[in-house]
Design a protein around this nucleic acid. Structure first.
Lengths: 222, 222
DNA sequence: GCAAAAGTGTTACAGTTACACCCATGG
DNA sequence: CCATGGGTGTAACTGTAACACTTTTGC
């Protein structure tokens, strides 16, 4: 097994690398997170995979999302890397956002389930802290970058988007101000589609993949 | 060698983990970064150490700073973790801020040197990109959190602090606005000390270790 | 025609920027 | 007494927050 050519270590320690993914979605009007049952510990854990030799960290994270949700695309962002001196493993943690409607695909045989972020089961080790941190980062991110639509289907109404923000941030937002800002930010664009249902039909919007966004963007929400 | 109890991997790959630290300081009125000569490659690299079994990631980063600067305390923050599928090593990158005046301590025998961030030598691999990213993160951080004083001695004048910000952000700031904001933010406090020299003596300030700061703090600078 | 959700502008306020002069010391 | 850097307040402006009614559809 080759060593990195750049750093020669004295006692050349080797580690297993675990890639964990905190997967968020929006179900039943609540922000929920995917957890994996670990009966041997009588507790739940954030789903993860050991890094294999032939995949990058992000590919492994994506594969982890696929394994537990059936989705082969998701918004992924690296969160933090934890290294315990005790056990010789290092944990690289990502967070992912997946749209709830696409989750009909059955889960893997593995015993994973969704939990609202405010009513979590007992978690192993420091996974509770990691979740808390992930949630904080998600809220921060939302405030100045507008990733909310990652939790929605490709086409969505502004009311749905606003509701997403309200659920995650945990506060009511002003409808007119919300629309003005989100449109001024230029990250979504209106489409000819409309959603019909109760009340007046809603114009549908979609993400503009070419949006630069976030670069030097002011905070969008208070 | 034990495996992590949480994730059982099929082909149980093991990796060397390299901890790199992008060390920034302020010398000669320029933001400078510490680099390590790698004559075999004819290029320079970000200083790093292989993670040993008995240290945490952050401890290893701190030790790396100590090795190359002689400083046993520094502001440290995790930046990003890079995983190449090619070579079987994973790189956890930190950035550090060290006050220039404390650097009189001689460097390790290793061939490390300081370079202004705008005139870098050839760098190995993706270290140039990593540096660019570290610099962006430093600027972001400075804008809303006020870590500038980490580059200054314990006691400093407001003019020195302002100059620090101007050098890093690359733009002139208004003296009165700067003072008002930095004081309102409540992260530094005035001390009885004064610095004498040319012109009127300056009141000296120091960091308030008890400052909560940054939590929900608005951006401090444009 | 009414219930239900979508859509739309303006005003008051707060925070930010721009700006110029006096002060304390050392030489 | 003068050169040098330290220190101070206000007014115009810009961005943000608060707010209520009209529109379109399904039933």
């Amino acid at each position: 097994m080759d060593k990195s050519p750049l750093i020669t270590s004295n006692h050349s320690a080797l580690f297993q690398i675990d890639v964990y993914v905190v997967v968020f979605t929006l179900r039943e009007n609540r922000l929920q997170v995917l957890l994996n049952d670990l009966p041997s510990a009588g507790a739940w854990q954030i789903p993860g995979l050991a890094l294999p030799t032939d995949l990058s960290l992000e590919e492994t994270a994506a594969q982890c999302v696929a394994k537990y949700t059936g989705l082969h695309e998701a918004y992924l962002e690296q969160l933090y890397t934890y290294g315990d001196p005790d056990r010789n493993a290092v944990s690289v943690v990502y967070f992912a956002l997946v749209p709830a409607d696409s989750l009909l695909t059955p889960l893997d045989e593995s015993a994973a389930d969704w939990f609202p972020v405010d009513t979590l089961p007992p978690l192993i080790l420091d996974h509770g802290d990691i979740l808390t941190y992930a949630l904080r980062r998600l809220r921060y991110k939302l405030e100045y970058s507008a990733v909310g639509f990652e939790l929605l289907p490709d086409y969505f109404s502004l009311s749905e988007l606003q509701s997403t923000y309200e659920i995650i941030l945990g506060e009511k937002l002003d409808k007119r101000n919300f629309r003005r800002r989100i449109l001024q930010a230029g990250i979504i664009e209106s489409t000819p589609r409309r959603r019909t249902g109760e009340g007046r039909p809603a114009q549908l919007y979609r993400y503009r993949p070419d949006a630069v966004a976030e670069v030097k963007a002011r905070r969008l929400f208070p």
